[in-house]
Design a binder for these strands. Sequence first.
DNA 1: AAATAAATGAGAATTATTCTCATTTATGCT
DNA 2: AGCATAAATGAGAATAATTCTCATTTATTT
Lengths: 146, 146
Amino acid sequence: MGKNSEQILSDHNVSITNPRILVLEALLENKGPITLDELQAILKNKVAKSTLYRVLNDLKKIDILDEFTSPENQTVIELVLEDRAHHHHLFCSDCGEIIDVELSNEFENFLDLEIKKIEEKFKFKISDHRVEMFGKCTDQCENCKS
Amino acid sequence: MGKNSEQILSDHNVSITNPRILVLEALLENKGPITLDELQAILKNKVAKSTLYRVLNDLKKIDILDEFTSPENQTVIELVLEDRAHHHHLFCSDCGEIIDVELSNEFENFLDLEIKKIEEKFKFKISDHRVEMFGKCTDQCENCKS
DNA sequence: AAATAAATGAGAATTATTCTCATTTATGCT
DNA sequence: AGCATAAATGAGAATAATTCTCATTTATTT
């Protein structure tokens, strides 16, 4: 099984505190992206709202938290540990579900070539990229059943 | 030269009003993505803030406005007229510049194949996608010179 | 040109996020 | 283990972003 939250914190030289542990545990348990609203609901009465924002910023600073915005303009966060493979996201506009997706190595190689071309054309140094896909899940999804 | 703003509005069956024209003209003039802050600055004293938000929502409803969030969490908007080629975005973390990028047909075809695989695997119907690239522009950029 | 429906401006209300500061908790040292 | 110090937290105030309200103005239809 994966690292526990205290391990993660000490690995990154930040102090081990209860709110940080609670946030990390919630994110580890969820496995995958989660909206800020959902996380707040999970941690209600356990972590003060201001502290939650602070902890999330702390995790961003030590580079283990990815934050992005859903097509519905919801803030979405996701733990990115070293062992997580590079991946992308799939959004369902019906139920709001966000799914981690891995694309083939073949594809990623092709994209890397494209990126080299872009770097030359625009005199850029590109350090990262993200592919987002938008659509609807059909019927097998928990959320859509409701 | 491209369509004028009144044309665009009537093409989409929405009434032609001054605030809408001003917003469209600002977006047409800018050509490319613009942050909400920048747009607000351009339209200060010309369009009320509440009206600006409303107009942007109107444009989204008629599907000619794309909104997304920069890595710095800035709201970014961009006019998407029918004649705009499908494209992606390149973000500079130094100066905040956002550049429209077109990727090769070859690449888009490859990506479409990948997307078909994803659709099967996750039982999704994918209607759109977006590739975002993050990096730094080197030295030729207006903003970075300052 | 009048009647009706829709859009606007101004600011209030709401929501999201950051900040302040007194108190609590973690860490390093002995 | 126990103290001293620095860091983190909770609660709510402050700020920023967005939506809402409603009286007035502007478009549209006839």
